[in-house]
Amino acid sequence: MDWPLTQMLTVKNLEVCYGAISALGDVSFSIAAGRIVTLIGANGAGKTTALRTISGLLRAKSGHINFNGEDLTRLPPHQIVARGICHVPEGRMIFSNLSVDENLAMGAYLQRDKARIAQNRDYVFSIFPRLKERLTQAAGTLSGGEQQMLAIGRALMGDPKLLMLDEPSLGIAPKLISTIFEKIVEINRNHGLTILLVEQNARLALEISHEAYVLETGRVVLHGPSPELRTNPELKAAYLGG
């Protein structure tokens, strides 16, 4: 099988089932290095399933996931993290009884280089200064927005090449949503970090991304540069509220 070399992540003909129920049927998409790519679509379209399959939480029934020339399809999650894919899961999944500091330390679980860890920590604090103020606090006592910052910060501690964000706007005060999205753009711009963003808020996702795939019941129905899709009449009617 030959893979386009310019693509960092290539998903080909991915099919995923929960028991007998098909969640993804023949999905293909790819992400070039340095870009923000978004998967949008309604609830149940298969966006979260796609991310979970890439990070190894779910097994693909068929199809391939290729990352920088290597096939990830059968690897367990911790080995996928080791390859440089960090996943900020839906619902944040921070370690609620651990302190903010310990959460960040766990994010760097596979990192061996102490200087590099310290550098990443400083970087996380420069993006989310709020985390530095809350270092010793149990993560479960943070507000929803702060927990999302922590979840992103924890993923950045893993020194990712590709950052996958699942519904970062979910359950967060509207005021904080724009802050978090600004930070996502900042992470991409200043460090060239490649980002795969799954988001129900299609308007927001199309605003900050370079490229978008629209999923519907487990299939890609539309694909294109985000600025173009923003004005697409079909999409406008279905996802952007007319």
């Binding site: 993290v81 899961p89 999944m93 893993g158």
Partner: peptide, 9 residues
């Protein structure tokens, strides 16, 4: 699950 996502085996 979250543990495996930060790279814990």
């Amino acid at each position: 699950r979250a543990a495996s996502l930060v790279g814990i085996n």
